[in-house]
Amino acid sequence: MTRALDPVAAHVAELERSLRGPARVRREIVREVRDGLADATDAYRRAGLDTAQAARLAVRDFGPVAEVADLYQDELAAGQGRRTALQLAVLLPALMALWSLLWSSGLMGADGPTGLTAMVLDLVVLQNVATALAAATALALVALTFRRTASPRRVAAAAAVTSQAAVVVCGGSAVVMNVAGGQQAWELLVAQPVSALAYAASVAVVVLLSRSASRTLRALHRIGEPS
């Protein structure tokens, strides 16, 4: 029997094409389904059917790919959403802690930041409030991913939106802060090269969180819709 005519291979290939999400998880899903269909085919063969008939019945019992793929897509979205929420809950507070440690350590000058404008100080408050809100929301969303009653797609969408909003607010205010205090930011970099690490960490966190959020949004794709 050629592969093209094998209904099991065709069914598995269709499922594989339908799913959106992390490659590792998709591979595992496909492997498990392929094994299951092989088991079902074997069972029909043991009952006396020829291979082609056995494979056809195994595929018929399995049901339409679209229905199964949609259920799997819920799980892919939920898994990616949980990851996004966890990253948000850990990375953003860690980044804020790193910056405040840097300011309070005296590395930035014995008296801490001097001559900061009122606007910059307001932005620092805004960042801290946004971080606390985002982290608390993210933790609540992680908890929701363990509840069977919560819609996995809604929780995942909320995680992606919260993460993107936090990135926009914290990242945006950081850019404004550094542009407003441009001279100071430059002096800080020159006087304390260690601060370059903090800037690099900030960029990394923004990139990681945005990437994770957009992966979650992609995993929310509905089977049957063009991607």
Binding site: V33, D61, E67, Y72, E75, G79, T145, F146
Partner: peptide
């Protein structure tokens, strides 16, 4: 029931711990 629906249900139960 379509046997295919059992596999995603296993994932869902695993996610829920």
């Amino acid at each position: 029931l379509p046997t295919g629906t059992v596999y995603p249900a296993l994932r869902r139960l695993e996610r829920a711990g």
